[in-house]
Design a protein around this nucleic acid. Structure first.
Length: 474
RNA sequence: GAUCCGGUGGGCGAAUGGUUAAGCCACGAGGCUUUCAACCUCGUAAUUGCGGGUUCGAAUCCCGUCCGGAUCCCCA
């Protein structure tokens, strides 16, 4: 039988790292085994589900390249089907109507809890023969009272639950909308899902689902419960831990390849390999190597992975992305067009940036003249002693016929020789003058990217700055 | 509280009864150097949560215990 996996998010928010990794694992499995990956939207919580969330989830998945082979299938489009299955259970005496009010149930639970018991529905409507007038009716599944359920989990091994620990769960609300544990079972079965791979927060739900499957006489899928992703402090990953939404990472200048790569290594490993492109993941992924323990999300390592991908991704692909980040950073569209080819900037910066945001920040100097000098840098390098250096630099660079990394580099070196100064005394003032910062790419590269005209203008401005400063201290 | 799952350096994790417990991130030192990076070298860091047991031998198997997480909703 061909493998069929699925990702079944509830559209009550955006796609976050945990969900994305679950989607990735499912997608990888399907790709690896030549099967199908289905996207199902679990929107039976009509209060909280939104169309916008659906769109955002799909958008995030497509940014990551996790295309579904089938779907999205919306559960709200299948309500008739769930009702029919519930009817079937009702007719077979495997489910019953319950008229208990929410208040009554809450009181029951509180009472049990106060007595140190596990809160469970006590089945008081099980034997009811006629409806309660005026009361809403839900449908409850009749959980077997005795026996145990064995879950064969591909990651955890065999996990058993005692039916006495379970209670009769609601499968249909008064309005005929199914609850999670029921719709999941019907859908996974109808869709021919062979492998249910999901977060281990669902492990405890599995015996209930298996009981329903058994009552319906349906075949059980394989289960694999993957460990959760925790925040750096060991608690469940949440907004407190910084960005957790996939889209946040796109905006922060992460490459989808890097997001995928970092996620796949969270809870899964393949020897000591750290970097995987999508094809490598598909070729190497297996449930057997998925860890059993929860993993903490580590922003530092994520940054490192992104840096690795910035390095190995062709500049032709990075350039247009860099352009949008530069624009977001205040660089004019027109300047982008008249400036140096973006590929050149990428080549120069790819070892110096861990994110595209960082790359853009560090590349602004190419287009925009510094409006202020970094205080520390100015204090240290734009001093009186630098004045003759800057003037001489302005002259020599102004006389340069060909403007390139090599020629500008040579010019700066010859000025240093001529004034018998070490490179640091020449390149640093110059760097601050043209970039406003004390750190930038190699001085030749920096000048080549800025261009002769702008370099000279900035140099002149720096000379004025130093002159003014001397005048002031006098 | 009950049930279920988990626990290897600060983080990710390798090692599925057998040499000094891999590798990566982070961190520290040095090298290179016009700055920042990158790169190279070296280093700090674990009595495998703890306690017992089985065994010639235990991170690995068994028992107990502690800690963490999940579930116990007309959320998914």
């Amino acid at each position: 039988m061909t493998m069929r996996t699925r990702f079944a998010p509830s559209p009550t928010g955006v796609l976050h790292i945990g969900g994305a990794r679950t989607a990735l694992f499912n997608w990888l499995l399907a790709r690896r085994h030549g099967g199908a990956f289905v996207l199902r939207i679990e929107d039976t919580d009509t209060e909280r589900s939104t169309r916008e969330s659906i769109d955002r989830i799909i958008e995030a998945m497509s940014w990551l390249g996790l295309q579904a082979d089938e779907g999205p299938v919306l559960q709200t489009d299948r309500l008739d089907r769930y009702r029919a299955v519930a009817r079937q259970l009702l007719d077979a005496g495997l489910a019953y109507h319950c008229y208990c009010s929410r208040e009554e149930l809450a009181a029951m639970r509180e009472d049990q809890r106060s007595r140190g018991l596990k809160p469970r529905y006590d089945g008081r409507c099980r034997t009811r023969t006629r409806p309660v007038p005026g009361a809403d009716a839900v449908v409850r599944f009749k959980t077997p009272e005795a026996g145990r359920v064995r879950v064969r989990d591909l990651i955890r091994g065999e996990v058993t639950f005692d039916n006495s620990e379970l209670d009769d769960l609601v499968i249909l609300r008064p309005d005929g909308v199914p609850t999670y544990n029921f719709s999941v079972v019907v859908d996974d079965s109808d869709m021919g899902i062979t492998h249910v791979v999901r977060g281990d927060d669902h492990l405890n739900n599995t015996p209930r689902q298996i009981n329903i499957l058994n009552a319906l006489g349906l075949r059980l899928p394989e289960y694999a419960h993957v460990p959760m992703i925790l925040g750096a402090d060991g608690s469940r990953l949440s907004k407190r831990h910084g960005a957790v939404n996939v889209t946040d990472y796109r905006e922060a200048g992460y490459l989808p390849e890097a997001v995928l790569n970092y996620m796949v290594r969270l809870g899964w490993s393949h020897g000591d390999q750290e970097l995987f492109d999508v094809d490598e993941m598909i070729g190497a992924f297996s449930l057997e190597q998925v860890n059993e323990s929860a993993a903490a999300f580590d922003p530092d390592k994520f940054l490192w992975v992104n840096e690795q991908w910035i390095r190995r991704t062709p500049s032709a692909r990075i350039s247009p992305l860099l352009a949008t980040f530069l624009e977001g950073d205040g660089v004019e569209d027109a300047d982008l067009n008249t400036g140096p080819p973006l590929e050149e900037i990428v080549e120069v910066q790819r070892h110096r940036a861990r994110t595209l945001t960082e790359m853009a920040e560090k590349s602004r100097f190419v287009y925009n003249e510094p409006d202020t000098y970094a205080p520390k840098a100015a204090k240290q390098h734009l001093r009186g002693v630098a004045l003759p250096v800057l003037r001489r630099l302005h002259q020599c660079l102004g006389e340069l016929g060909e403007w390139s990394v090599e020629t500008t580099q040579a010019a700066v070196e010859s000025v240093a020789d001529e004034l018998t100064l070490k490179m640091g005394k020449v390149a640093q003032p110059l760097r601050v003058a043209v970039t406003g910062e004390s750190a930038s790419p190699g001085i030749g590269q920096t000048l080549a990217l800025i261009g002769q005209e702008k370099t000279l203008r900035r140099l002149a401005k720096a000379v004025e700055f130093v002159e003014a400063r001397i005048a002031r201290t006098r």
